[in-house]
Amino acid sequence: MTTWQIVILASIVCLALKTVGYLVPPRAFEHPTVARTANLLTAALLAALIAVQTLGAGQSIQVDARLPAVAVAAVLYALRVPFVVVVIAAAAVAALIRAVT
């Protein structure tokens, strides 16, 4: 697939998902297990993406400047620092570590 095909396909799928509830009678989705699992799915994917972004290097695991940067981000989120500031701080921590090592 080309980048454009990936971008367009993914966009259409995501947009289609948003329209489902306006088209389909809701009964099929009312089961609590389905609703609960859908909620948890979001958390699972985000957590998996964090792990891969922090530790993955292609098809291997690599501990480097990203790990302390994400740890700093976690501390800042816990202190309720705004999103954009945390993202910039994480980038700065990683860049700083790379500059001095």
Partner: peptide, 17 residues
């Protein structure tokens, strides 16, 4: 990587989670 933007991506996901 020089700017630490790869770490910023992980931090962005963490912010969503």
């Amino acid at each position: 990587s020089a700017y630490g933007l790869d770490a910023a991506a992980a931090a962005a996901f963490l912010g969503l989670l």
